[in-house]
Amino acid sequence: MKRKEFFSSLFAFVPLVLGFLGISKISVDFLNPETGNAKIRKIFAISLEDINIGESRNMTDLKGKEFLLIRTGEKKVKALSTTCTHLGCTVYWQQDKNRFYCPCHQGVFNPDGEVVSGPPPKKLNSYDTEIIGNNVYIYLKDKEA
């Protein structure tokens, strides 16, 4: 290839490749926007008078996802996500077997949310809670804008 031809090709193809890369980058960013860190909100959940020790309540977080609030002691509560840590299915609380069971791939968790058997890689997620007086508060992520 002659020098002139080489430079002609270079001038033709480099902008083409750069343009293609630019458009690809813009398209990918457009289709995959960064989701900003959602604010954490402290929300009143329940009064201790309305839940006895050992009892649980189904609740919904700010994104509409269900979770379980369990009173484990006099001044102790626990809020467990019911979303399986394997592939996102909802776990069932099986009272007779004292366990959480995921119907998708047979994951089993104990009442503390720890993995007993099956493919889940880690324990069920939990939400931070706080008790002020008789009131139970829970820390939840706000909805994305």
């Binding site: 919904t60 509409g64 996802k65 909802t90 119907p103 047979q106 099956g118 493919p119």
Partner: peptide, 28 residues
């Protein structure tokens, strides 16, 4: 219903082998 996974859940037949494999192995 985004809050309740059906207790008897199966994918379409052509994903059965993968679905079974996922039950037998860890996520990785």
């Amino acid at each position: 219903n985004p809050n309740v996974t059906p207790i008897h859940i199966k994918p379409e037949w052509y994903f059965y082998p993968v679905f079974r494999w996922l039950k037998l192995t860890n996520l990785f």
